Amino acid sequence: MNEKNLSSPLINETKAGEDCDDLTLLSEVEIKYKPEVKPKDRPRVTMAMEAYKLIKPFFEGCLYHHEEAWVMLLNTSCKVLGVARLSVGNQEHTIIDPRTTLQLMVKTNAVNLIIFHNHPSQSLAFSPEDIKITKNMMKACKLLNMNCLDHIIVGEDGYSSYSEEGY
């Protein structure tokens, strides 16, 4: 790319030190001190929502057929380092092993992770086993100064987040 393509037209047309006499080339800016949309009415974008958008394509072939568990590995700034499939299960369950997950985190130098899995029934409710697995993963991560930020159940039309549900 050349530098000229990155500059705005106004900068390209005027030379350094010249005044711009044609004010029609300038944009008008309006500042409002009272926004029309109140903070409570603004759409709330959460980490879980953003993570769901990124991970959902990985579940395309299995959403209704069988359970799969995936992890998103993140650095200290919560930038995505990568995703990895932990396991492929059957209609009722899949395995999320803390040892395997922590091994992936250490190998990729990840500090944070988010666990994902689907329910072929499309129920977005956390089962008692899902809650137990998440608590165990959080404890295991804490031992190594790592964080399990969330566990998200992926569905066709939405998701359920462990952290947003307040478990």
Rank of each mutant, 00 (worst) to 15 (best):
N136L: 05
H117N: 09
Y159F: 13
G17A: 02
T94W: 07
C62R: 00
E13Q: 15
S7V: 15
E3S: 05
C62V: 05
E60Y: 12
A16C: 02
D157V: 12
I31T: 15
L144I: 15
M47Q: 11
V83P: 04
K38G: 07
K38M: 12
T108G: 01
Q103P: 07
F59I: 05
S121K: 04
Y64W: 04
R42E: 06
H119E: 00
K53Y: 07
G89V: 14
L113R: 00
C20P: 06
L6I: 14
E156S: 04
H93Y: 15
N2R: 07
S123M: 06
V37D: 03
Q91H: 14
E68T: 08
Q103H: 08
V154C: 02
L54I: 14
L26C: 06
P39F: 10
G17W: 09
P128K: 10
N112V: 05
V45E: 01
N112P: 04
L26Y: 09
P128R: 05
T76E: 09
I55K: 06
R44H: 07
V37N: 03
L104I: 10
H151R: 08
M49C: 01
Q91L: 15
S121I: 07
I96L: 11
Y159D: 01
F58N: 08
E165H: 03
K32W: 08
S77M: 13
N112H: 09
K107M: 12
G158E: 04
R85P: 14
L23A: 02
L124R: 03
L73H: 01
N112Q: 02
E3H: 08
E13A: 11
L63R: 00
L26D: 03
H151P: 13
K142R: 14
K142F: 15
L10M: 13
A84H: 11
L102D: 03
K135N: 03
V111I: 12
D157H: 12
R42P: 03
N118V: 08
D22Y: 07
V45H: 03
G158M: 10
S7Y: 15
I96C: 05
S160W: 08
I31P: 13
T24C: 04
Y33Q: 09
A51L: 11
L74D: 03
H117G: 03
E50K: 05
D22G: 04
I153N: 00
K139G: 02
N112K: 02
Y64C: 00
Q122L: 02
L10Q: 11
